[in-house]
Structures are given as C-alpha cells and as structure tokens.
Amino acid sequence: MRDYIKRFLIAIIMALCVSLLFLGGRHTEAASTPETAEIKERWIWPSDGIISDTYGTRNGKHKGIDIAGNLDTPILAVEDGVVLKSYFSTTYGNVVFIKHPSNFVTVYAHLNKRSVMVGQSVKQGDMIGKMGKTGQATGTHLHFETHQLEWRYDKKFALDPEVLLGKADVGETVQGGVASIGDHILEASSHFHTSDDNSKLQTTESSIKDTYIVKQGDTLYSISKKRNTTINKIKELNQLTSDLIRPKQILIIQK
C-alpha cells in the first residue's frame, strides 16, 4: 500500500513539473509574436549610450532597461505616437509617456529636460527630451519601459524592451536612431528632429573610451586610482551627490 502511495505521489509531482514547463514555454512564446517581430524591424533605439541595466533585475522589480550616457544626450521617440503624459515624478523624475499605433506605451524617465507636452503628436526620431538623472537615479541615464495596451502603477503589462528593440547586454553600446533587423542594423532615422540644427548625436566610440563599468567591491577611491583621476572629478562628470555607486553602474571617466 505504501509503495502504491509513493508511486501516486511521484506521478503527481512529475505531472506538475511538466505543466510548469509547458506554462513557461507558453510565456516565452507570448513574449515573441509576429506583432513584436514586426515592431522590432521598425522601432529605433531611443538614445546613444551604454546598457547599464536590463529588464527583470533587482529581484524582478526593474521593469525596463537603462541606457547610460552623457548629460543632455538627445532622447528620441522610438515610433510615431501621441504624448500621454509629460510631467515630473519623485521616482521617474522628468518623464514622458507615449502611446503608439501598435498599442504599446513607451516610458522615458529621469530626463534632464522634457521637450513635448500632453496631447502632442510625435514622429519617430523626434527629440522628446534630454538625458539626465532626475528622480530616483544614481547616475545620468535613460530608464526606458514598454507596456502592452497601457501603463499601470503595478506594471502588469510591462514587456522587456529588448523583445522590441533587439538584444543588448550590460556594457554594450547602442545608437539612437537605428533599428535592429535580425543580425543587421538599419538606419531608420539618420537625423533626429529638433529645432537646433547644430545638435548632433555623440558617437558611441568616444563613449566607450570614456566610461567605466562598476564592479563588485569598487569604490570611487579605487576607481580614481585605476584611472589616474580624482574622486571629485568622477563625481563632477557623473553629477554624483554622494560616494554611493553600485555594480554595473556606468561612470564617465575623463581621458
């Protein structure tokens, strides 16, 4: 009798495991659909910079990707749309929400400046603001989110932006105004739209030479010694108000 009960329990456990694997597969399939594949072919990256954090980190609470760069780097609309919100938040800082025809909502947070108003129509590649570190941000970067149908406070409909923009790991550079198609890059917007004709996107090559990715155990003191600079200079370049830094944070370092 005991052997029968054991076999019965083992069968139930195996059935549950198979069910969980099936559900996991369904979830992955839902994240990559013909609709998202089509969007991936036309959406552009929202700014120049280096990926400093990805979706799902911080125990699953990070519902977007972070692109670190220089202060006032232009932030671009990834697709045509209408501005849903443009305001200052204690968490997001200066933030812009755009609703797109594809029924996605994109969020651009921690901006130094906002260039659009609620209800305004924008075209793909329009400059909607400039990169900053407003709100709850430890350094200059763009926090970018994508949501299906609508943005909610609980971020129930959040989707990994890399599903729509292409895969990019921490430390990799991205260029605003280009879109991924498979393994190739298509220039979707060679010039972002702005009233200042002299404004230009900074090249990613110069950004690579002047950045440092914080490692576990690093301090501003140890980094300053490695790069032959000073703590004050690092803080000044990165608009840091304290000595607090975190692993994988991208710091701008003077040559």
Results as ranks from 00 to 15, higher is better:
172 E>L: 01
172 E>V: 03
172 E>F: 00
173 T>R: 01
173 T>W: 03
173 T>Q: 01
173 T>E: 05
176 G>V: 04
176 G>F: 02
176 G>M: 03
176 G>Q: 00
177 G>D: 00
178 V>D: 07
178 V>F: 06
178 V>E: 09
179 A>I: 04
180 S>D: 06
181 I>Y: 08
181 I>Q: 12
181 I>M: 10
181 I>W: 09
181 I>G: 05
182 G>I: 05
186 L>Q: 12
186 L>A: 14
187 E>K: 06
187 E>T: 15
187 E>L: 09
188 A>E: 02
189 S>R: 05
189 S>P: 04
189 S>I: 04
190 S>N: 13
190 S>C: 10
191 H>W: 10
191 H>Q: 14
191 H>S: 14
191 H>I: 12
192 F>I: 04
192 F>E: 05
193 H>Q: 14
193 H>C: 07
193 H>S: 15
193 H>M: 11
194 T>G: 12
195 S>Y: 10
195 S>G: 15
196 D>W: 07
196 D>Y: 12
197 D>F: 12
198 N>E: 14
198 N>P: 00
199 S>M: 11
200 K>T: 09
201 L>C: 00
201 L>A: 04
201 L>V: 03
203 T>W: 02
203 T>N: 10
204 T>M: 06
204 T>V: 15
204 T>D: 03
205 E>R: 04
205 E>I: 01
206 S>Q: 09
207 S>N: 09
208 I>H: 06
209 K>S: 10
209 K>I: 08
209 K>Q: 11
